[in-house]
Computed example of a mutant assay.
Amino acid sequence: MSKLLHISASPRGEDSESLRIARTFTETYAESHAGDQIEHWDLWDGSLPDFAAGARAKMTVFGGGEPRGAEAEAWAAARRAFERFTSAGRVLFSVPMWNGSVPYVLKQFIDVVSQPGWIFGVDPEKGYSHLLAGRGTRVAVVYTSAVWGPGLGPEFGTDFQSTYFTDWLRWTGLTDISEIRFHPTLTGDWDDARRQADARAREIAKGF
């Protein structure tokens, strides 16, 4: 039995386009993968740990030491988040655009799980190694925005959303990535954009 983990970064509930498209994906996946487990991780549910002490623990580990006290507790909480993330062979992210980039809670997730020995190694001569490579993990990402859209000029913003997040995924070693996009813009046909995004979500989910 495989597992699909949906990690969502929108707090907008029924008003969220990224969550709506993700539901289309997970419903289609459930129909096409009978018996597979589907888990939803809402990054706004308070389960992500604060990482102030964790940041100190990270530098302790970098220096070859062992975190202790509050640092050890923060490190253990980060490890639990990392293990939840890597427990699934299939991962769906729903990512709305916030101010040209990703919601801060998704950046918190990235900063919590991206630790030496877990996500990456680093060599002074060879640079980074990508520790999630070779696992066979597949990733799908729903990217949504309301103002920015492909082909629009810089007066409508710049896409630091997908460029940043895709770069992070590849840095971890996750390179089997499918994208579902919803960018109707302020003057576009929202209904048609929804139909296209839903069709793309169903297409990917069936073979995911």
Rank of each mutant, 00 (worst) to 15 (best):
S145I: 01
I110W: 09
Q115T: 15
W168A: 08
G173E: 01
G136W: 11
Y164T: 08
T144H: 13
G149Y: 00
I177R: 07
W148Y: 12
S162W: 01
L106Q: 06
G134D: 10
S178R: 10
G117T: 14
F182N: 00
T175H: 08
E125R: 15
G121T: 07
S129D: 11
W171T: 14
V141N: 01
T158S: 11
L131V: 13
V122R: 15
F165H: 01
V141S: 05
E125T: 15
V147H: 05
T172F: 02
I180S: 04
Q115G: 08
S162F: 02
L106K: 06
P154H: 00
V141K: 03
T144N: 08
Q108C: 08
L169P: 02
Y164R: 00
F160Y: 14
A140I: 09
T166G: 15
I177E: 00
T158C: 08
A133R: 12
Y143C: 01
G136H: 13
P124W: 13
H183T: 06
L174N: 04
Y164Q: 01
G153T: 06
P150I: 05
L106P: 06
R170V: 09
V147E: 10
V112Q: 02
Q108H: 12
P124T: 15
W148I: 06
S129K: 13
W118Q: 14
I177L: 10
F120D: 08
I177A: 03
P154Y: 03
T158M: 12
A133C: 07
T185V: 00
P124E: 15
Y143I: 04
F160E: 07
A133E: 13
G173N: 04
F182T: 02
V142M: 11
G151H: 01
P150D: 01
A146I: 05
K126F: 10
F109D: 02
I119S: 10
F160D: 05
D176W: 05
F120K: 05
V142G: 08
E155I: 06
W118Y: 15
Y164E: 02
D123V: 12
